[in-house]
Design a protein around this nucleic acid. Structure first.
Length: 416
RNA sequence: GUGGGUGUGGCCUAGUGGUUAAGGCGUCAGGUUGUGGCCCUGAAGAUCGAGGGUUCAAAUCCCUCCACUCACCCCA
């Protein structure tokens, strides 16, 4: 039997209410903050991601769905959203628009990873980017928007963590200090941390091994090594977050996995501890556009995983608006009535009334049973008698009543 | 990529070496003429994840693979 490829899922009809809800709230919050939708290709030139995300990251090294197409081009299914949006910004000369340019997307993301709770090989992200502005007001807005988005979904038990990891002026000093600090403890570090020390120093702060926690707690903090501009930026961000009353905490251990982040980084996490708990994250990436051969342009963005959101909605027992279903079932008996039912169903739909019509030669009992299972509000019944008298039986499926009315009154009656 | 757990009709579950794999939910049909929901009756639906092995005999034991799941790595 064919199965969906590992790490992919079918989103079945019974799940769709969650997806529609999340997507609608996403579009609505973007509208509220002046972000416009952009859709970029599912695949891009491999170099775009390698340059943007960072050659040394796991995503680029081992998680990308990369292949050569028949024209011998190196192609990759997008492993994140930001690089593509930046490419589009540069390609379409959006630097000439009033800045910042604010864009959002809802799209599939592909990473070849081992599937786990809240982690798939194809997953879906909602993300947004404000490109062309270095003002911490925009950082504040991006964080607030994420917060409000989750609030609008009914997810209340969340915390916002923020940190600043500096810029290309001040970060090297910090990394050097951090490295020196850790080199004194190499004998006691876990083996993953030893690799991190060589390859991704910041990640040392993110280790989950109990034995490594003591080193993290007393490690030098990035905020103590910020240059004047970065320090000022971070202070203003906190001031503005205080101004709008957004609850957050500064977390010195917060680092993010992609190389392009500068200054502000933030994550939003549910209270419940667990493996793949982070529900969304983002930050500033002031060097990415120039890295992608655009002129130097500051930017800040956020992305969240829709599967993880839905996981949280379900865990919190949050009910979502149902998707619309047909409200009328048309049942008929006999060949003549059947033809009348075909015509009637067509006319009802023409009038904008959603209809399920019965098929096959089922007994009336069976047809009504089907109507009941479909949870329609009304069943319309047509038999030979009704055809002869140009009437229909309108049966209220939510109660027990029914009435006979002239055929040409039915639409008006149903539209009430 | 590393390590643990799991895999029985569409869904949930019983069965842990021995006759035709049991039940619940769901689906479909019937309970007399054209009426659903409750109830009753019946039916369909399972090569017990796949392949190999041990055995007189395997859903049950062993191996391999696949998938799901949990943790790590990493990330949304």
């Amino acid at each position: 039997m064919y199965q969906a490829p590992r790490g992919t899922i079918d989103i079945l009809p019974e799940e769709q209410a969650y997806w529609r809800f999340v997507e609608q709230q996403a579009a609505s919050i973007c509208n509220l903050y002046g972000y416009e939708r952009i859709d970029t290709p599912v695949f891009e030139n491999t170099k775009l991601f390698a340059r943007g995300i960072g050659d040394g990251t796991d995503i680029v090294e081992k998680e990308m769905y990369s292949f050569k197409d028949k024209g011998d081009n190196d192609i990759t299914l997008r492993p994140e959203g930001t690089a593509s949006v930046c490419r589009a910004y540069i390609e379409h000369g959006m630097a000439n628009l009033p800045q910042p340019v604010k864009l959002y997307y809802l799209t599939s993301i592909f990473r070849y990873e081992r599937p786990q709770a809240g982690r798939l090989r194809e997953h879906h992200q909602f993300g947004y980017e404000a490109i062309g502005d270095a003002d911490p007001v925009i950082d504040t807005e991006v964080i607030e928007m994420a917060w409000r988005f989750f609030q609008s979904l009914g997810l209340k038990k969340l915390s916002v963590l923020i940190n600043s990891i500096g810029c290309k002026k001040c970060r090297p000093n910090y990394l050097e200090t951090l490295r020196k600090y850790y080199q004194k403890h190499t004998a006691d570090l876990c083996k993953d941390c030893l690799t991190r020390l060589e390859r991704n120093t910041l990640r040392l702060l993110d280790c989950k091994q109990p034995a490594c926690q003591q080193f993290i707690d007393s490690a030098p903090k990035s905020v103590d090594y910020l240059c004047e501009d970065c320090g000022q930026h971070f202070n203003l961000l906190q001031k503005y977050l205080d101004t709008i009353g957004l609850p957050y905490s500064v977390n010195h251990k917060l680092v993010r996995g992609l190389d392009y982040y500068t200054r502000t980084v933030f994550e939003i996490q549910p209270e419940i501890e667990g493996g793949q708990s982070t529900i969304g994250g983002g930050g500033r990436y002031d060097n990415l556009i120039s890295e992608l051969e655009g002129k130097p342009t500051p930017a800040v963005g956020f992305a969240t995983g829709i599967e993880r959101i839905i996981l949280n909605l379900k865990r919190e027992g949050i009910t979502v608006p149902p998707v619309n279903k047909p409200s009328v079932f048309v049942a008929s008996m006999g060949d003549i009535a059947r033809e009348a039912a075909v015509k009637l169903s067509s006319d009802l739909r023409q009038a904008g009334i959603a209809v399920v019509q019965s098929t096959g030669t089922k007994s009336l009992k069976a047809q009504l049973r089907q109507a009941n299972n479909l949870k329609v509000q009304y069943a319309v019944i047509i038999g030979d008698e009704e055809v002869a008298s140009q009437t229909v039986v309108l049966k209220d499926m939510t109660g027990s009543g029914q009435e006979t009315l002239p055929l040409d009154c039915l639409i008006d009656r149903l539209e009430d």
